[in-house]
Design a protein around this nucleic acid. Structure first.
Length: 117
DNA sequence: CCCTTGACTATCT
DNA sequence: GAGATAGCCAAGG
């Protein structure tokens, strides 16, 4: 599913829901978030949706497809994201996130079908 | 409209 | 692994 047209509101809502479900210590790429949210091909827009969010979201668990932080190394945002990730057990080496959990990304089935039970 | 920007991605050298 | 390149797509000027 990748609507040719959509409202910014519906897009933001879908993206925020996915991001809010990324578990601590795990990460997803912008492209993965877009795809799971139902907007494949809109990776760049995911960053805009995150920038627009006012509610507290684990935005720092979203990284680039190669697992590097999207911000410019040394920037304030970069430092903040690195700190937040390390605070929950992830390791950041050379701008690259090293997830020490068993899974590299969140359980997509749970994201799509909801928590078990 | 046209052009530029960007918290992107995939591929090639 | 590091650059360069091309493709991507909505927003904003």
């Amino acid at each position: 599913m990748s609507p040719t047209t959509f409202s910014r509101e519906s897009f933001d809502t879908a993206v925020w829901r996915v991001v809010a479900n990324i578990e601590p210590g795990q990460v997803m790429s912008y492209g993965e978030v877009a795809r799971v949210a139902g907007f494949a091909g809109h990776a760049r827009m995911v960053s805009q949706a995150l920038r627009r969010s006012d509610a507290p979201l684990p935005w720092y668990r979203v990284v680039k497809s190669d697992r590097r932080l999207a911000f410019k190394p040394g920037s304030e945002a970069y430092t903040r994201q690195k700190g937040l990730l390390e605070a929950e057990g992830a390791q950041v080496v050379n701008g690259k996130v090293i997830v020490t959990e068993s899974a590299d990304v969140v359980d997509l089935d749970r994201l799509i079908w909801g928590p078990p039970g």
